[in-house]
Design a protein around this nucleic acid. Structure first.
Length: 877
RNA sequence: GGCGAAGUGGCGGAACGGCAGACGCGGCGGUCUCAAACACCGCUUCCCGCAAGGGAGUGUGGGUUCGAAUCCCACCUUCGCUACCA
């Protein structure tokens, strides 16, 4: 049998379109992937991948996330695990609402249409999702439990309402802190400039869990993610010190002005104070002659954040309020400034400025001619030596509170350690503390002031409470009723869910249509029965994604948000996969929710995801993020139509390390397609050969049949050994490469006398099994043909057990030993595996090339590296 | 400015103390074909050489080691996140 020209036309070629849809339908029909959650006879494997937003169509980035995840699922099934791989849709959110405004259609219809298309596309991947457990977050069956949990949070003091300045985008309404991006403070979604607005808002007390969230014990997460979360939480241990305002012509004085500092040891160097523009005491401290100037500055500061960050000069600005304060240790009168380099939302919104030891304060003091007093220096130095820049001692920088590495991953673990490190630094110009080591003074000053209630140890965090209010329609209505007499009252459990009305008036502006829906708004107060108004804010969609994996276990459960038995049996999630762009927000919120739900008695655990893998992002061919507006979106449907799903799956895995991502380039896709074509030919037409190649059909010169049989067996089992490790570590690119190598070996033997021998058949079988999780259709098709050819009944290849390595087959009889002389490669020699070092040395030293390389020199040591992997002859100098 | 990640052929990448460039793309040459496409075979880090062979080489400069792409120090570049956190 030959394979060329007409003959090739006759031989059946790899034609994925001919069978991929058939198998997808078959797997669905047999319900191969709906998981029996009650089956406890097998080890469970809860595999979760981040559910998509129903934007309308999958792009290649979705395939990049889902395809390897599906391979993990299939691989675990081959190990006998009861795998649960659910999917759903993150179906609330702005794009639906924007589309609604634009096209005057209902967001629900838009969303439903999109989901239907995406479900079809998911099927075309051959992904084995448990569709029976699908969760759609815009379904009342789901969001009612958001509401239910919100009322529980309220009862337990975890939710509260507060009027505060919020970031406001003219298009998208309120934004979370994290949703404001970049130096110019633009909206993460639409890019518009962000303003500030005062609004009553609902918050969740995530900061109550700040310390617990810093602890990653018992979860296997990538270190960069842990570091990012740790830095995001930003725990800072220091002290709060109370300054008193000084009496003046316009001001009685004696008011408390609290500051947060990590350096109370520098208190004697505090020569002025700075308040954030938002600080509540700004107005009362301002003297009449300064009022105009201060008010103008404060007004400018609220807008400023948008405008001036781009202007490269980050020069500090501020104005004197005309008010003064008393330094509690020196008794000095020091001026109080307002400056926007102090943040209203951090610490107390006020600082004591120590220009000698803080770069920002130094710059400010220089600009406004304020005194700079050195209070810390190396022992024995001259305390009056003028400073040309702030003296910030490095060791203190590495304290957990400093700007350097901090927290559990930051090197120096505790303040004590940090203080020990600054032991050689002493206070100067600090009254009774002069000459005292800075480390000692730190505590002493705080403790002494604490006796008079003037200071206390304090911890602050960068992390703020989670603002969940959105002035938007397409989200979970916050279940609260505002009554004139009773204030905000939670909707009673029996009245849940508060349904989102389906027919609303889209005004085309950013304003929430719920504000104008009288049928929705009008309600009686559950407490007093008087007419009241419903809350119109809806919840941040990150609420939806903060517990959805629990709901997958019992998506239709009407008794509660979760089924405690299934939760206990199936969670925490064994493996979570998703994009690294969610490193902080979604993953931190999910951890918080899990802990909060635990404290409400809903779940029995503290961490949601035991193991996390963050894959990289596929960018457009231009290296930019894929987006419709950039026009660089790659449509997988076209690719599937051309190459078939298996080729696309495999190509995405072959591109490079999974956590790396990178720009999309279809170059090379043909190589993967060719590989599958060869697998096809090897398995379905083992005796065919290429007539255009005179060598084809003959064993390589000098190779016996026995050699070839050995080589096939060895190659197959070594590949199995290595590929198994790659599967475990999600190293898809090398996994594919190794399967290509094995196929190259078999390709060479195709049509020769060893094709079809038991070793051949075994190698082919192993190749198919190893390829099955990654390329499920072609392997299933070939598998069924092989069974049919042997007259056996059909069973799915995906129900087979992962093969085990025959170590004796994987072992080789000989090995090639590279020979170095003085670390330079000079020769190689093939020797028997069991050879002794002495024998090896004799052979090595007798090699011509080695003798030449040694020349007249004397042989010194001979190094046998890596258990005989390499020999290095070291010459005497 | 801070934090994180990464710099290896023309390209994606492999190797992560022991043969640098696995596997694939692209390129070049060839077989098949009237021809093209497909398919197949061979070569392909750079420099010198007809070859045998030799030399250089993993962002740059140092260091540790018998041996460094890999470990350590300094620097440069790119990407991501963050933006004065007291």
């Amino acid at each position: 049998m030959t394979t060329t020209g007409e003959a090739r036309a006759r031989a059946e070629r790899y034609e994925p379109r001919a069978f991929e849809p058939k198998w997808q339908a078959r797997w669905d029909e047999l319900r191969l992937h709906d998981t029996n959650l009650d089956d406890t006879s097998r080890p469970r494997f809860y595999l979760l991948t981040m559910y998509p937003y129903p934007s309308g169509a999958l792009h290649i980035g979705h395939w990049y996330i889902v395809t390897p995840t599906d391979a993990i699922a299939r691989y675990r099934r081959m190990h006998g695990d009861n795998v649960f791989l659910p999917i759903g849709f993150d179906a609330f959110g702005l794009p639906a609402e924007n589309a609604a405004i634009k096209n005057r259609i209902n967001p629900r219809d838009w969303t439903e249409t999109n989901m239907e298309n995406m479900r079809r596309q998911f099927r075309s991947m051959g992904a084995t999702f448990a569709w029976e457990n699908e969760v759609v977050t815009c379904d009342p069956e789901y969001y009612r439990w958001n509401q239910w949990m919100f009322t529980k949070f309220l009862e337990n003091g975890l939710a509260y309402r507060s009027v505060s300045p919020v970031d406001w985008c003219p298009n998208d309404g309120t934004l979370a802190r994290e949703q404001v991006e970049g130096a110019d403070r633009h909206c993460w979604r639409c890019g518009a400039k962000v303003e500030k607005r005062e609004l009553p808002q609902w918050y969740l007390r995530i900061t109550d869990y700040a310390d617990e969230l810093l602890n990653f014990d018992g979860i296997d997460w990538p270190e960069p993610i842990r570091i990012m979360q740790t830095n995001w939480i930003g725990r800072s241990a220091g002290a709060e010190v109370v300054f008193a305002t000084a009496p003046s012509a316009h001001h009685a004085g004696g008011e408390e002005l609290r500051v947060f500092t990590t350096r109370p040891d520098t208190l004697f160097g505090a020569t002025f104070m700075v308040l954030a523009p938002e600080h509540p005491l700004v107005a009362s401290l301002t003297s009449p002659d300064r009022q105009t100037e201060v008010e103008a500055y404060v007004a400018a500061a609220t807008v400023k954040s948008e405008i001036d960050r781009l202007s490269a000069d980050r020069e500090k600005t501020g104005v004197y309020t005309g008010g003064d304060a008393i330094n509690p240790v020196t008794g000095e009168r020091i001026p109080i400034y307002v400056a926007d380099y102090v943040l209203g939302g951090y610490g107390t919104g006020a600082i004591m400025a120590v220009p000698a030891h803080d770069e920002r304060d130094f710059a400010f003091a220089q600009k406004y001619g304020l005194p700079i007093r050195r209070v810390i220096m190396a022992h024995g130095g001259d305390p009056d030596e003028p400073l040309t820049q702030a003296f910030v001692d490095k060791a203190a920088d590495h304290a957990p509170n400093g700007p350097g590495p901090r927290g559990p991953l930051g090197g120096i673990e505790t303040l004590l350690e940090a203080r020990a490190a600054v032991g050689e630094l002493v206070l100067v110009n600090s009254g009774q503390y002069s000459g005292v080591p800075a480390a000692t003074a730190w505590d002493h000053i705080v403790d002494t002031l604490a006796e008079d209630g003037k200071a206390s140890h304090a911890v602050t965090y960068r992390l703020r409470d989670w603002l969940i209010s959105r002035q938007r329609y397409w989200g979970t209505p916050i279940p609260v009723i505002h009554c004139e007499d009773d204030g905000p009252v939670p909707v009673p459990e029996g009245d849940l869910p508060v349904l989102l009305p389906d027919t609303v008036d889209y005004r085309g502006s950013g304003d929430n249509p719920l504000n104008h829906d009288e049928a929705f708004l009008a309600v009686d107060c559950p407490r007093c029965g008087k007419p009241a108004r419903r809350e119109t804010d809806t919840m941040d969609t990150f609420i939806d994604s903060s517990w959805y994996w629990f709901r997958y276990l019992s998506p239709h459960n009407e008794e509660g948000p979760v089924d405690p038995t299934l939760v206990e049996q199936w969670t925490p999630v064994d493996q979570y996969t998703g994009g690294a762009e969610h490193a902080v927000m979604h993953l931190l919120y999910s951890r918080f929710f899990t802990k909060a739900m635990r404290d409400l008695g809903l779940v029995d655990q503290s961490e949601p995801f035991r193991r996390l893998f963050n894959q990289g992002q596929i960018l457009g061919a231009d290296g930019e993020r894929m987006s419709k507006s950039r026009g660089n979106v790659v449509d997988p449907d076209d690719l599937v139509a051309r190459y078939g799903a298996d080729t696309i799956r495999l190509f995405l895995m072959f591109m490079g390390p999974w956590d790396q991502g990178g720009p999309w380039s279809p170059t090379g896709i043909g190589g993967v397609s060719k590989f599958l074509g060869r697998v096809w030919s090897i398995a379905t037409d083992p005796h065919g050969h290429e007539a255009s190649d005179p060598q084809s059909g003959h064993l390589p010169a000098g190779e016996s049949e026995a050699d070839a049989r050995d080589r096939m067996r060895t190659a197959a089992h070594r590949t199995l050994r290595d590929v198994t490790v790659d599967y475990e570590g999600f190293r898809w690119n090398t996994m594919v490469a190794k399967l290509m190598e094995l196929s190259n070996v078999l390709w060479r033997y195709r049509g020769t006398s060893v094709a079809g021998l038991p070793e051949w058949d075994e190698a082919v079988r192993l190749l198919l099994l190893m390829l099955a999780p990654a390329a499920p259709h072609i392997t299933e098709e070939i598998w069924s043909r092989l069974l049919e050819g042997r007259g056996e009944a059909w069973t799915s290849i995906h129900g087979q057990r992962w093969p085990s390595v025959d170590e004796s087959a994987a072992a080789e009889a000989t090995r090639e030993v590279p020979i170095q002389v003085n670390g330079k490669l000079r020769d190689k020699v093939t020797v028997a595996m069991g050879i002794s070092q002495l024998e090896l040395e004799q052979i090595v030293l007798s090699r011509d090339k080695v003798v030449v390389a040694i020349g007249d020199a004397q042989v010194g040591r001979i190094i046998h590296a890596g258990g005989g992997k390499l020999v290095n002859i070291v010459l005497k100098a």
